[in-house]
Design a protein around this nucleic acid. Sequence first.
DNA 1: TAAATCAATTACTTTTATTCATGGAGTGCT
DNA 2: AGCACTCCATGAATAAAAGTAATTGATTTA
Lengths: 300, 300
Amino acid sequence: MATLDRIHLEIVRSVYRQGSLTAAAGSLNLTQSALSHTVRKLEDQLGLAIWYREGRNLRPTQAGEYLLAVANRVLSQFEFAEAQLKQFAQGERGSLRFGMECNPCYQWLLKVVPSYLDTWPRVDVDVIQKFQFGGIGALFGHEIDMLVTPDPLFKAGLVFEPVFDYEQVLVVGLNHSLRNVDWVSPQQLANETLITYPVSTDRLDIYTQFLTPAGASPKRHKLIETTDIMLQMIASGRGVGALPRWLVEEQSARFDVAPVQLGPEGIAKQIYLGYREADAEIDYLQAFVKLAQTHRAGKV
Amino acid sequence: MATLDRIHLEIVRSVYRQGSLTAAAGSLNLTQSALSHTVRKLEDQLGLAIWYREGRNLRPTQAGEYLLAVANRVLSQFEFAEAQLKQFAQGERGSLRFGMECNPCYQWLLKVVPSYLDTWPRVDVDVIQKFQFGGIGALFGHEIDMLVTPDPLFKAGLVFEPVFDYEQVLVVGLNHSLRNVDWVSPQQLANETLITYPVSTDRLDIYTQFLTPAGASPKRHKLIETTDIMLQMIASGRGVGALPRWLVEEQSARFDVAPVQLGPEGIAKQIYLGYREADAEIDYLQAFVKLAQTHRAGKV
DNA sequence: TAAATCAATTACTTTTATTCATGGAGTGCT
DNA sequence: AGCACTCCATGAATAAAAGTAATTGATTTA
């Protein structure tokens, strides 16, 4: 069935380059006899001649010319593919698909990824934000390779590692009455407009760890998708938000906003990286975890 | 060195299509064991896994995904190439490169080629008009496959076959004084302007077979490259020309020109097709010769 | 004309691919 | 839990193939 094979293309190309079967045999580390046999067999199978035998040398037939063109094209694809696979094998190449389960996670990832891309130039990074069965499901379903989440799930087959600690704070405008208090209580938000990302309240720390336990709630709850717009709204006094302290401090140069501690102890948060146990030895994955932990120590 | 081979791509694709090694083995007419061995060997050589073994089924690794993409692309090229070669083998496909040594030859070819292209849709026809070492040299040098010429050369390795007889005539405008004579003599051209294609006089029949033997020559000799312009010039009385009778008769509908016999006997010409003896069995070449001879009988 | 070069061929050897038989591991069903 | 089923891996045996060595014949070069 499949008469044509890579070796045949190699022979056609080599005969063309070297000018003779004998020379081609040398360059392919085979004997002249071997090539002669292989060629004969191929020609028999195809039912046509690849070369005219003219005296002691070969001149390609039309089929030969065609095969030569195919050889040049296809062989380079083989060679490129092999080079790519070699890079895969050496771990120099791959792709990391991230899944995110909280917005601060995304903000954090944006800060870590650039230096990772520098050290692993051949690893593609992709961020997937919508998964059908949640982050864990996406991990098990191989939709993603790494989950960035504040909620580790220590389950067989998965590994979670903490990579970043931060404090979730209230964000207020510079003229806001709460700006200069040491900390705010849940009740103090009863007359405020709270601006959050548009996700259900059980995924918002300010509800789960602050308002809900105290039975409190804000006057209004506004949903805004992007951080920049959210900060602009807060800066203009339209409401208050809840974000990681480091993010607020970083953005305070661009927006007139300030962080305020939530409760007497503050809300401590952690970001975890989760991945499949089976992938643990993938070096470029392991390298990401290491890099993430390095960032943790310094100020991100 | 060359680890990756066609069969590996076949396996990768088949496993993807069939969903399992066992099924793939079936579709490739091999045993499951054979594939397993082959795969193992390839993975060892590449130094990476192509599939994750998950329970009893296989899920492609990143390298596997990549290989699958390569397989889809490269295998289709193999398959197309094989189909093309099959057409070559069946003589359904090829190319016929014509060389021309006289302008009437070209006119004649233009009339024969269309019906040939109809019957041999996969044969490409090419016309080459400039050859370094003459038509015969081009034939021997494989620049062309078929020579259309009025001068056959019966030489070892070449075959010439007559395919068309025609009469070379003088072409005059409708108001020309020679229009209604039975035939013209060389001397009658002494006061005429002769318009010919721009080639040396020893390649012009009106010189070699008419003027030169009689020691005559026209008053002026103008060179014009295209037949249409030449006929326009003749129609407007700027001179006379020499062309095949069939061509003049055909064009007399478009131009005000008429044919006049050259000499008491007329000038009889033949067109020959020359080709390499070695190509004699190429069916689409032989078919062209046959077709050309058919045209000969009828009015071209 | 002799020496050299090249492809084809035959007989033989080596390597590779494939099969057969079997075992282990997961999956699904009762 | 137990059983049947399916799938992949493996080792040993075998079949197939690819390869080599040595020689021939044809053609070119010196």
